[in-house]
Design a protein around this nucleic acid. Structure first.
Lengths: 248, 248
DNA sequence: ACCTGAACACCGTTCAAGT
DNA sequence: ACCTGAACACCGTTCAAGT
């Protein structure tokens, strides 16, 4: 009602900056999904016009680069102090806790992997993360060449996620679809039918039997084992410590 | 000029159907990228109005489901007759040729993996592909349980692709970016710097040293090896043939 | 320096209307 | 049964204008 009323909406408001924009963007994506992360809706959540955002990020792509920066900062903080640190020469245990710590962050921002995979430029935060992973392997007796291949072999798993094919957004709808397809599966796809029958023991018999965390760790261990065999086979790092091949 | 002139544009034109729509969509994505695959532009390429498409596909999502069907038909045709068939009990060789055949198709449709990963429902074509993969493993001595885990461990690699983090659309721009970051990398990220230095031998010293095909096969073999060890370790399939552990 | 309103060139999609 | 035109509710972004 007074002159101050209008001022409260502008002068009293904290000024916008890149950091506030990015934090609001992460919050919006966490709360309402990446689909809701539009310039207009983000501006709205900040009580500002869409065009104001362009003073702090160059465009939508730069905004997405920025939210990945925020998430990767979180990942790097999480892996800096693992709950159970591994022995310095036990590269497998070191990689395992590192990857699973990164995974925990990604599970808090389930939209992040999808955005990360659309990034076209590599950020310092991601390089920092990779540097830590490489360090674990090099100190564990890898050649730089093998460590390089190892990072490719791990792929996005190195960052704690795996793009699952056909991740149903509605599990019950997916179950219904599986139910509907069952006759065709039994008739035409014997191995899939057999696998589903075998997997149904102890579960409710529906398709949604996969334990994502178990499958992630299984795949991770398969790769780490395969890499360990190659590390030993090559032995192109003379000062490498004696390998400890006990499965954890 | 005559009455027939107008007729040529409508009556003489082959009628639209789902198949023609999907084929045109694949062609458009191949030629101009998925970004160009909009209802309006697809209609234009068919000489028709955008709204006409809705008589043959329910909506954009159904269109994307459809183009994946087309691509997966191609994959299934490619893996049906591999160039060098493996011995029936050599599951590793069988999976290897299968995956690499699928990969050849994906390389012809580089946009397909990205679309595939956004699908929410699983199609019969994909089930058919997985059934073939499972068959190779089951006949090779896998339990259904292990075969299930194996498919998860392979992930999208089972279909011949791997979502690389930071796939530069413009390699020379990526090199320029790497060049620019080099001082910071050398100062702050010793292992990345070491890896780049080691990798620069024999190459032009730029970042773009990765041989995608080599890295794909390396990662694939790492996983297949790790799976073979688990197949032997479990040995929960009594009639399993004697394992052949020679590295190919 | 920072923010705004109107406008532009795109999307996917609905609806009533044509043949 | 199949196709169309106009319209609606969204996008990201440009530009000239405000303070």
């Amino acid at each position: 009602m007074s002159l101050d009323a209008g001022a409260e909406e502008t002068a009293y408001r904290r000024p916008l900056n890149r950091d506030r924009v990015l934090r609001a963007a992460v919050e919006l994506a966490d709360g309402e999904g990446v689909g809701a992360l539009t310039m207009r809706r983000l501006a709205q959540s900040l009580g500002v016009e869409a065009m104001s955002l362009y003073h702090h990020v160059a465009n939508k792509e730069a905004l997405l680069d920025g939210v990945i920066e925020v998430v990767m900062d979180e990942v790097n903080a999480a892996v800096a102090n693992p709950e159970e640190p591994a022995a310095p020469d036990d590269w497998r245990a070191g990689m395992r806790v590192r990857v699973l710590a990164a995974r925990a962050v990604m599970l808090r921002h389930r939209w992040a992997p999808g955005v990360l995979e659309t990034r076209t430029a590599i950020s310092p935060q991601v390089i920092a993360y990779f540097d830590g992973s490489l360090g674990i392997m090099i100190r564990g007796g890898f050649s730089y060449d093998l460590a390089h291949h190892a990072m490719h072999a791990l792929g996005s798993r190195a960052l704690g996620f795996m793009q699952e094919l056909f991740e149903p957004d509605d599990p019950t709808a997916a179950d219904a679809q599986a139910e509907e397809m069952m006759p065709q599966i039994v008739e035409s796809f014997p191995y899939v039918a057999g696998m589903m029958a075998a997997a149904a023991h102890g579960t409710d018999g529906q398709l949604g039997w996969c334990d994502d965390q178990f499958e992630f760790e299984f795949g991770l261990d398969v790769i780490l084992d395969g890499l360990e065999r190659r590390r030993i086979a090559r032995a192109d790092s003379p000062e490498a410590p004696a390998p400890s091949v006990d499965d954890s």
